[in-house]
Design a protein around this nucleic acid. Structure first.
Length: 874
RNA sequence: GGGCCUGUAGCUCAGUUGGUUAGAGCGCUACCUUGACACGGUAGAGGUCACAGAUUCGAGUUCUGUCAGGCCCACCA
């Protein structure tokens, strides 16, 4: 039973991690009654887990373990996401190393490669999760692309299509020329870039006009110029045409409200095929759409002699030619916000193309209502505003991607009648003309379409399964705020549409894990921290505690080694408390057993019991309210300060080797075992390891299956708190005097303790404790007049006089002066408050009374200290 | 252009309904290797709570404004 001096988490954590899984104790069985269910934000199979995942999983696992121990039928569904475009990119990158492209490989072979990749990384992710002690139900592991979930995707798509909420059409989309696919608005990021504003002359019969543009190359596709209808400067242009330079095309001058007369020259070139605004204008004014840039960002034949050039090369040449022709009026530097592909940072090309869209307005309404009426609650609540803002202004969702890795859209084109067949099952013929000549759409769905179904597709939807009935809607979602729109919002509207219910009742959005300098961790910056490395270095428990403590208010957390050191020290502290307990048990001949109730025989027992009940109450309410750092703080200080620094120190004085099992053991073990259970959701490994050494024969298999403590406030003993406070104050007074006046002196010094009123009894009973912990040899006196020959510390309850071996008068005087100064300051403060009539009249009586009492104390102590100082001077 | 967040000890951060002398961890100073633990113990030093107003008997906490930093959304060529 001997424990090592230093806790080595690496020796125990892998064992318990594996054992928890082998026993299958986290498998949830559907049954009626109170449940707690949660689905994992499925990590992408693109790679292994990073610190962000670890934070997420630490928070989830804490909630899950707490609910499980609290008696809820608890399910945590694990799984991974196929992550369409992201995975396709990494697999393509792998292929590039072999010198092949996916086109060379062909679609079928490429998808096989993706699956192979998925197998490797899913296993890696699973192993990492298991090593972190995540208490999920591995029997229910899911993948967004597995057969069951793919069926859910089809069902959802077909339902939306049948309801008219999915349409196909030619629209302006964000096109990434590198990924060679359309992407949604969310998948673009806007970066401020230094560019130019080119002022170009367009000649017309009456002279020239000047337009300003940031993208001169798109002029090749201009089909109009636009002015504001009320712009008096250009009234003469109404109804005229201008000549498009380089192309020698006559294009009309149109009037449109969208033009801002104050920007540039007030005249804007209109390129309906390559700008979202111009696209709208083009439709309004029935302009021709001339596509001059293609899907690979090269100029099309419609660009005439510029055909085949890359768009940026074309820009240079267009500008050069215009300059030669004297058509450039001026060039200004200009800061613009450039849309680039979120994945590869290539500038997005707005292109008109045929894509599939989800109609958002009808879906957004119920999703907004669900949050407004509180069926879904955001934590922290201020995310509600952000969610609202986005949902209120939502645009249709482009869900088709020109990729290979993903759910292929279940639509078939008929070569004969050119109609569409959208179907749950693969059709053999066209549903319109019965022709057998049909081809399936080659596009796949946006990866977020399948993850949007995750909370119910993982539970068996669209079938009416036992799991759905027992665990849906899920209780809580824990995820980073960065995927609020991508994922959370989509789950909400898809959940409501598909199941008629919210997918979850609460959403806890946490921050990002940053490096010690507060920088976002990224592979390119090279500042990513591998969870495995830190877990080996500090222990998973310690890292979990650090993350939980840091995840206070949903803000980002800086991952600093200092914090980890402190957490590791805490694990070591617990370990050594256990080491002491086990050593003493052995010496006393006590067998491990968990008592069912405390004995409460001594003052420190009654006191620690109070503290324990407080800690229990705080833990439960903090966890309930998602105030995780508060919970972590409560158990940390209970164990370290109350239990180790005071309780064990006091108990040491009562423990006699060979004494056998007595009341001291009963309380010590009772409290310690409770502390382990309280801590278990945050630090599962060390608590399991130590609890197993204590467990009774009839205990549950694992601490994870025990009941979470609930506060029993009926047995609180307030008198124990005040007695203990007095005791602590006396001991602290002795230590303070010693430290300030005789530093380095290790011998027990004589001291006289004068007690007044109730404290006398406490002191008599705790005499040994005071002497041992305060390192003094006590003489006890009663009464209010202290002996004035030594270092004095006065409080309303007692006066402690420390008799110094060779009294250093100067030191004593300094000490007294300091005390007088502090008391004087406090007294003045109180007096000032009490002299304020309005305060006395309006403040709660309790507060005023307290201040009056304190003032009286300060004055009495001041008088004593001053008298002592005077006596010293003589 | 809109929206959100942050500014408290040298550093990283707590501080729920306004209320008695503003806390923690790390770091720092002094002392202690005491039979659980030096990843420890004890005692300390250190803060005009970014700034300016307002409300109030009372503001780190509420309101307004300013400054500084961060993030998100947005069709201004």
């Amino acid at each position: 039973m001997q424990l090592e001096k230093i806790y080595e988490p690496g020796r125990f954590e892998p064992h318990w991690a594996q054992w928890w899984i082998e026993t299958g104790m986290f498998h949830a069985v559907p049954k009626p009654g109170k449940y707690f269910s949660l689905v994992i934000p499925p990590p992408n199979v693109t790679g292994s887990l990073h610190m962000g995942h670890m934070l997420d999983h630490a928070l989830i696992d804490m909630a899950v373990r707490w609910h499980r121990m609290s008696g809820d039928n608890t399910l945590w569904v694990p799984g991974t996401d196929h992550a369409g475009i992201a995975t396709q990119m990494v697999v393509e990158r792998e292929l590039a190393k072999e010198g092949i492209t996916r086109q060379q490989l062909g679609r079928e072979e490429f998808v096989k490669r993706c699956w192979k990749w998925k197998e490797i990384y899913q296993k890696r992710i699973d192993d990492q999760m298991k090593r972190l002690g995540s208490s999920c139900d591995w029997e229910r592991e899911r993948f967004t692309f597995d057969p069951g979930l793919s069926r859910a995707v089809r069902e959802a798509f077909v339902r939306l299509y049948e309801k008219g909420l999915i349409y196909r059409g030619e629209y302006m989309v964000n096109w990434c020329p590198r990924c060679n696919t359309a992407i949604s608005d969310l998948e673009t990021v806007h970066t401020t870039t230094q560019g130019h504003l080119w002022y170009i002359r367009y000649p017309y019969a009456g002279g020239t006009i000047v337009v300003a543009t940031t993208r001169p190359e798109t002029m090749l596709g201009d089909t109009a110029v636009a002015i504001h209808p009320e712009d008096a400067r250009y009234a003469s242009l109404h109804g005229r045409t201008v000549t498009l330079p380089l192309m020698d095309r006559e294009i009309p001058v149109i009037l449109d409200q969208l033009v801002d007369p104050k920007f540039g020259t007030g005249i804007v070139k209109v390129t309906p095929a390559h700008d979202a605004n111009d696209f709208e204008m083009g439709k309004r004014h029935k302009l021709p759409f001339i596509k001059v840039i293609d899907e690979s960002a090269a100029m099309t034949p419609a660009a005439g002699r510029f055909s085949g050039l890359d768009r940026f090369e074309a820009r240079k040449q267009v500008v050069a030619e215009l300059r030669q022709l004297g058509l450039i009026e001026k060039i200004e530097p200009y800061t613009l916000s450039l849309a680039v592909c979120d994945r590869c940072k290539t500038p997005v090309e707005p292109l008109v193309s045929t894509q599939w869209f989800v109609k958002m307005k009808p879906l957004a309404k119920p999703a907004i209502d669900a949050v407004d009426d509180g069926r879904i609650q955001f934590i922290p609540a201020n995310w509600t505003t952000t969610y609202h803002h986005w949902m209120d202004n939502i645009r249709d969702w482009c869900v088709s991607r020109q990729l290979w890795w993903g759910h292929r859209i279940p639509a078939w084109y008929c070569d004969d009648c050119h109609q569409l067949t959208v179907s749950r099952e693969d059709p053999t013929h066209c549903s319109h003309c019965q022709s057998g000549s049909i081809r399936q759409e080659t596009d796949v769905l946006d990866t977020w379409f399948s993850s949007g179904l995750w909370p119910f597709s993982t539970l068996g939807w669209p079938d009416d399964t036992e799991d759905l009935r027992a665990f849906y809607p899920t209780t809580l979602l824990v995820t980073g705020f960065d995927i609020l729109f991508f994922w959370v919002a989509r789950m909400i509207f898809l959940g409501l549409e598909m199941t008629g219910e919210v997918p979850f009742r609460q959403v806890h959005l946490h921050g990002l894990v940053r490096d010690p300098e507060g920088q976002k961790m990224s592979k390119t910056k090279g500042n990513v921290i591998d969870p495995l490395t830190v877990n080996e270095q500090y222990g998973t428990d310690a890292v979990r505690l650090s993350l939980v403590q840091g995840a206070a208010s949903g803000m980002d957390i800086s991952f600093t080694p200092d914090r980890m050191d402190a957490s590791r020290a805490f694990a070591n502290k617990i370990w050594n408390a256990a080491r002491f307990i086990f050593m003493k048990m052995e010496a006393a001949g006590v067998e491990p057993r968990i008592p069912s109730s405390p004995a409460l025989a001594c003052l420190e027992d009654r006191w620690i019991h109070n503290r324990l009940q407080n800690a229990i109450a705080t833990m439960n309410s903090s966890l309930e309210q998602h105030r995780y750092h508060e919970a972590a703080d409560a158990i940390y200080h209970f164990i370290w300060d109350d239990f180790c620094d005071w309780y064990i120190e006091l108990k040491k004085l009562r423990m006699r080797d060979g004494s056998g099992y007595d009341d001291n053991w009963r309380d010590l073990l009772f409290v310690f075992e409770h502390a382990l259970r309280l801590l278990h959701p945050i630090m599962p490994f060390i608590t399991e390891e130590l609890w197993q050494r204590l467990r009774n024969a009839d205990s549950p298999l694992s601490i994870a299956l025990t009941n979470y403590p609930s506060a029993d406030l009926s047995r609180l003993d307030p008198s124990a708190d005040s007695s203990m406070a007095t005791l602590q104050a006396i001991i602290t007074a002795a230590r303070t005097l010693r430290a300030e006046l005789v530093p380095g002196n290790v011998s027990a010094l004589p001291a006289t303790l004068y007690t007044h009123g109730a404290s006398s009894q406490v002191v008599t009973a705790a005499r040994e404790a005071i002497e041992r912990l305060g390192n003094v040899k006590l003489t006890l006196e009663q009464g209010s007049t202290p002996h004035l020959g030594g270092a004095v510390r006065s409080t309303p309850e007692f006066d402690l006089v420390l008799h110094l071996p060779a009294a250093d008068t100067n030191a004593l005087r300094t000490r007294l002066e300091k005390e007088i100064e502090q008391l004087h300051k406090a007294a003045t403060n109180s007096e000032r408050q009490l002299s304020n009539d309005e305060f006395v009249r309006k403040a709660p009586e309790q507060i005023v009374t307290n201040i009056r009492a304190k003032l009286a104390d300060y004055k009495a102590q001041l008088a004593k200290s001053r008298a002592t100082l005077e006596a010293l001077g003589q």
